[in-house]
Design a binder for these strands. Structure first.
Length: 428
RNA sequence: GUGAGCGUAGCUCAGUUUGGUUAGAGCAUCAGGUUGUGGCCCUGAGGGUCGUGGGUUCAAGUCCCAUCGCUCACCCCA
């Protein structure tokens, strides 16, 4: 049997309503914050991610789905969206049309990691990018959008963590200070962290190892070495978040795994999923656009994992999706009326009524059971003596009331279906 | 890449410790209980190469080895 590839999942009809619910909520929120949707190809030239995300990151160095196409061009299934959005932004000169571009997306991403709770190889993210302004208001806006969406879903067990990485100059300065602090503690660090000491020293703060944590307990903090501009930017972000009632905490040890971040970074963590607890992460990336060949321009954004959010919702039992309904089920009383039933079904379907009927030649009782299972509002019986008299029987499945209706008055049935119940066109 | 746990019906799982008839249950499906009427209830039916391959044995779902898959954790990140 051929099965779905490791780390990929089918989203079956039973689960689609949850996805649509979440997607609709995201779209509404994004619209109210005036973000416009952007869709980019699922694969890009590999070089984009190497330059955008950073060669040294785990994502680029060991997690990408990279392959050669028939023209020997190296392509990669996108592992994240920001680089792709920035590429499109530069390619289409979006900055020339509008000084500030506010974009959002809901899209699949690909990373070849070992699957785990809340971690798949094809997974879905939604996110936003605001390109063209360095205002701290946008840093805050990102956190507010993300938090509001999670909050609207009913998630409770959330922690918002923020930090500032400052500008590269102050960060380099800090790295040296940290290096000196750790120089006589190297023997206390884990193997991984010893490597990081050389390659990307800030990432040592990400370690879960007890020994690393102990060694870092008294470490100097990045936030103490920010220049005055970064500091005031960061303070403004915090003030705006406080005014917006976002329950955040400053975590000076929050460093992110992508190289492009500057100034504000943030993460929203849930206590309701497994160990992959980050539902959302983001921050400012004022150097990325220039780095990818665009005119120097600031940007800020975030991405959130939809599977993780759904997992959290499931564990907190906070998604109340209304059950699926059918407007009408047409029941065939006589087996020689299959074509008549088919005509009637089509008549109502073309009026945007959700209708079903039996294609399996089943008994009336079986048809009724099916109608009940489909949660239909009405059933329509076609056949027998009533049919000879030019009538059909309409049954209200809620109270069981039945009435005979002349077949010349189908519009009477139509009105009933349209008034009382949610019809197909509104259900999406 | 590393470690641990788990693979029995469409789903959730008993049965494996101590090998022994034809491998079970609940849910779901189908049929019947009204020559034309749902939910509840009752009766019955279908559905399994016990993940796969090999080994031990008179005998393997059960013991051994290998292999594949899934899950969780490390790692990393959304």
């Amino acid at each position: 049997m051929i099965k779905a590839v490791t780390g990929t999942r089918d989203i079956l009809p039973v689960d689609i309503s949850k996805w649509k619910f979440v997607e609709n909520l995201i779209q509404k929120k994004m619209q109210s914050f005036n973000y416009k949707e952007i869709r980019t190809p699922v694969f890009e030239e590999t070089a984009l991610f190497h330059r955008g995300i950073g060669e040294a990151t785990d994502i680029v160095s060991k997690e990408m789905y990279t392959f050669l196409d028939k023209g020997q061009t190296s392509l990669t299934l996108r592992p994240e969206m920001t680089a792709a959005v920035v590429r499109a932004f530069i390619e289409h000169s979006l900055s020339a049309k509008q000084n500030l571009n506010k974009l959002y997306y809901i899209a699949p991403m690909f990373r070849q990691e070992r699957p785990q709770a809340g971690r798949l190889r094809q997974f879905h993210q939604f996110g936003a990018e605001a390109l063209g302004s360095s205002s701290p208001q946008l840093d805050s806006e990102m956190i507010i959008i993300a938090f509001d969406i999670l909050n609207s879903l009913g998630l409770k067990n959330l922690t918002v963590k923020i930090n500032s990485l400052g500008v590269p100059a102050s960060r380099e300065n800090y790295k040296n200070i940290l290096k000196e602090f750790l120089s006589d503690k190297l023997h206390l660090l884990s193997e991984e962290s010893k490597k990081r000491y050389e390659t990307n020293i800030l990432r040592i703060f990400d370690s879960k190892e007890e020994t690393d944590r102990k060694a870092l307990a008294e470490a100097p903090l990045l936030t103490d070495y920010l220049d005055t501009e970064s500091l005031s930017h960061f303070e403004t972000v915090q003030k705006l978040l406080t005014n917006a009632n976002i329950p955040f905490e400053v975590d000076p040890k929050l460093v992110r795994g992508l190289d492009y971040y500057t100034e504000t970074t943030f993460e929203i963590v849930s206590g309701s999923v497994g160990s992959q607890s980050a539902l959302c992460g983001g921050g400012r990336y004022d150097l990325l656009i220039e780095q990818l060949g665009g005119k120097s321009s600031p940007g800020v954004g975030f991405a959130a994992g939809i599977e993780r959010i759904l997992l959290a919702c499931e564990n907190e039992n906070c998604l109340n999706i209304p059950e699926e309904k059918l407007d009408l089920y047409i029941i065939r009383l006589d087996n020689n009326l299959t074509d008549k039933v088919f005509d009637l079904v089509l008549y109502f379907r073309r009026k945007n009524i959700a209708v079903e009927f039996d294609c399996l030649a089943r008994s009336v009782k079986a048809q009724m059971r099916e109608a009940n299972r489909l949660n239909t509002s009405y059933t329509l019986f076609v056949g027998g003596g009533e049919y000879s008299n030019g009538e059909v029987i309409l049954k209200n499945m809620f109270d069981g009331a039945q009435e005979n209706i002349d077949m010349c008055q189908l519009d009477y049935i139509l009105k009933k279906l349209q008034s009382g119940v949610v019809n197909a066109s509104e259900k999406t």
